[in-house]
Amino acid sequence: MNTNAPPIEIQGVTRQFANKRALDNVSLTVERGVVFGLVGENGAGKTTLIKHILGLLRAQNGSVRVFGLDPVADPAQVLARIGYLSENRDLPGWMRVDELLRYTRAFYKSWDDRYAEELRAQFGLNNSARVKNLSRGETARAGLLLALAHRPPLLVLDEPSSGLDPIVRRDILEAIIRTVAEEGRTVLFSSHLLEEVERVSDHLAMMHNGKLVLCGALEDIKAAHRRIVIRFDSALGRPPVLEGALSVTGAAHEWTVICNGIGNVTASATRLGGKIVSEHSPSLDEIFVAHASTKQGVV
């Protein structure tokens, strides 16, 4: 294994399911020590991408490397380095919590008993409880414990917060922060909750219809996107066509434009006789909606 290889390196991966293109020439690199947020609508391709990282799907085109290893050719090596929590936490219901821990422990050389016990106590999981009798929040915590206790260099969370109450969500975010605060560990997580993504991630990839429409440092993405309001002296019956605009909403005299880089929009607004009356930094939600609503969607 190449010890300097980035945790995740995906190049030109395409995946076709029947007549749906789930991934369309996706390339991205996740560097060591970052929290990488993966966002996109349902069906955008996030889970399919994660399945390639875990080696559950073989790349039809392109290549997937995890710490320099091919997850399909070398699943044991790759999975030993990944802590994984999925939205469907399918844990064996007939086991007791202590049995579940002993069972999972056997798969990982790096399992840390003290850390596992610390997490179990912190999460309030009862050793003698049957997994099938755990509440939804407890099941999520049990899944999180299993993903963390072997102290993986890469933590992969697929929609970890979906359908959970704020207290469990807090546990999950705390785990992400702690993981990355420990030198050199890396987190990839997908989420619909953009507020969470904005808080904890430093890199962001946005998917739309199987394509990567946005990828980079969160700070750069936020700095490049602007929400501007353009005012026209005469009322417009339909949205003005502005070069470089991701979305244009409004009515009559005033229109709100979300754009990635302001230059082209300003120029074409001026040509149409519009004047910029305000300029702000949009929230991640607004950026997301703007990208998801553009037809071409490519930057």
């Binding site: 975010l173 922060i177 605060a181 808080r199 430093d202």
Partner: peptide
């Protein structure tokens, strides 16, 4: 840094 990151649930780099 680390303590505040965990308290605010914000990336330590931030």
């Amino acid at each position: 840094i680390r303590a505040l990151a965990e308290q605010l649930l914000v990336n330590p780099n931030t």
